[in-house]
Amino acid sequence: MNKESVLIVEDEEKILRLLELELEIEGYQVGKAMDGKEALEAYQSRKWDLILLDVMLPGISGIELLRKIRTKNNFTPVILLTAKGSVEDKVSGLDLGANDYITKPFQIEELLARIRAVLRMRPAAPSMEAEIGGWLNTADLKVNVKTREVIRGDSHIELTPKEYDLLLYLLKNKRQVLSRDQILGAVWGYDFQGETNVVDVYIRYVRKKLEYGFETPLIHTVRGVGYVMKDAK
């Protein structure tokens, strides 16, 4: 039995109770909240391994709650529970850093599989160096995993949440060649249903912000495989 903790944020009582029972049967520690304000308090009260977040909530919406979470925490996985056809919510959630989404009504077996997949792919804990100073670096690039600051040389670089997620994943795995599928799974989540070239598009976005005006490229293309982050050494 696993001891991982899941916070369920859902305003429909029957769905909330069903999810609570199923997750407890699977061995998860479960917390629950029925509106955005209650969810924010529950989120701040302890560390959670995963959050199941309904988009349509009274008070603070699920998308706004996700935005608040991601301004302070880039590591806790979030799976959105979305209404059928709510494409805008799915896109907004993924752009804000949701790891995955599932559309209502859903099969509980599929949701449990997605939870397991997201937990397997969650970001590794920061290294001891990062825990002490908050910084990860390569060459003249520094990323603060606590404040989300990105600095190259003397320049502060502004990234969107998804661009930051991509950069952080490359940096945590620097000098390792990562396939597009690996990047897609880690940054966009299990069974992403967007454009298949999304990795290449976002690599271009990050390269433009990270490398324009600098002599040394940091993100390198490995033809036929994917990408690797390394300095010139």
Score class of each variant (00 low, 15 high):
residue 142 K to F: 14
residue 139 A to Y: 15
residue 157 I to C: 10
residue 54 D to E: 15
residue 24 E to V: 02
residue 132 I to Y: 12
residue 75 F to L: 13
residue 28 Y to D: 06
residue 57 L to A: 14
residue 137 N to M: 10
residue 77 P to V: 01
residue 50 L to E: 06
residue 39 A to G: 14
residue 40 L to E: 08
residue 148 R to P: 00
residue 129 E to G: 03
residue 133 G to L: 00
residue 149 E to I: 02
residue 130 A to L: 03
residue 90 K to E: 12
residue 123 P to F: 02
residue 85 G to M: 02
residue 148 R to H: 11
residue 30 V to W: 00
residue 56 M to Q: 14
residue 147 T to A: 11
residue 20 E to C: 08
residue 96 L to K: 03
residue 51 I to Q: 11
residue 61 S to Y: 15
residue 105 P to M: 04
residue 104 K to Q: 07
residue 110 E to M: 02
residue 116 R to N: 00
residue 35 D to C: 09
residue 18 L to M: 08
residue 133 G to E: 04
residue 41 E to K: 14
residue 152 R to T: 15
residue 86 S to L: 07
residue 52 L to I: 05
residue 58 P to H: 03
residue 19 L to I: 04
residue 87 V to N: 08
residue 74 N to I: 13
residue 110 E to L: 07
residue 35 D to V: 04
residue 159 L to H: 04
residue 34 M to C: 07
residue 112 L to V: 12
residue 62 G to M: 10
residue 85 G to W: 08
residue 59 G to Y: 11
residue 51 I to R: 11
residue 69 I to N: 01
residue 23 L to Q: 02
residue 129 E to V: 09
residue 33 A to F: 01
residue 70 R to H: 13
residue 114 R to K: 11
residue 141 L to I: 09
residue 83 A to R: 15
residue 101 Y to G: 04
residue 32 K to L: 06
residue 148 R to A: 08
residue 154 D to A: 10
